[in-house]
C-alpha cells in the first residue's frame, strides 16, 4: 500500500532533477532498493504508470537494482548474507554484528533527452 506515497516521492525527485537539467523528457530511472527497504517493484511500477502520465517522465522505464541484505561481523570482519534465522556470524559465531548493506532506498540517476 505505501508504494503510492513512495512512487510520488520518486516522481517528485525525478522531475525536479529533469527540470534543472532542462530535459525534454525522462526516458529511464535508476533506483537502488535494499532488501530491508520493504518495497515491491511491481507495485511501484503499477503506480508509476498512473502518476507519471502527462509529465516529462511519462513512459520512463524503471530500473530496479536490488541490494541483498548483508551483515558485518564486528569481531572477525566477515561479511555474510542475511538469510532469515541465524543472524550470528557463520565464521566465529559472534553476535556483535551490524547491517552492512540492504537499507538502500535511493534514486541514483535518471536518463533524459
Amino acid at each position: 500500500m505505501h508504494e503510492l506515497s513512495v512512487t510520488e516521492s520518486i516522481l517528485e525527485i525525478a522531475l525536479r532533477h529533469a527540470n534543472q537539467a532542462q530535459a525534454k523528457r525522462v526516458t529511464a530511472l535508476h533506483l537502488v532498493i535494499g532488501q530491508l527497504a520493504s518495497i515491491v517493484d511491481d507495485s511501484v511500477q503499477f503506480y508509476w504508470d498512473i502518476i507519471s502520465a502527462g509529465t516529462l517522465a511519462e513512459g520512463a522505464r524503471l530500473n530496479f537494482r536490488r541490494i541483498p541484505a548483508e551483515l558485518l561481523c564486528l569481531d572477525c570482519k566477515q561479511r555474510y548474507a542475511l538469510n532469515g534465522e541465524d543472524l550470528a556470524c557463520p565464521t566465529c559465531h559472534s553476535r556483535r554484528v551490524e547491517v552492512a548493506a540492504g537499507a538502500e532506498f535511493t534514486l541514483e540517476a535518471i536518463d533524459i533527452e
Binding site: 525527485i13 535511493t106 534514486l107 533527452e113
Partner: peptide, 16 residues
C-alpha cells in the same frame, strides 16, 4: 541519445 544525470537522492528525502 539519452543523457544520464546522477541524482543520488534518498527517496524519502521530502518526508525526512
Amino acid at each position: 541519445m539519452p543523457t544520464r544525470v546522477m541524482v543520488v537522492e534518498h527517496i524519502l528525502n521530502a518526508n525526512d
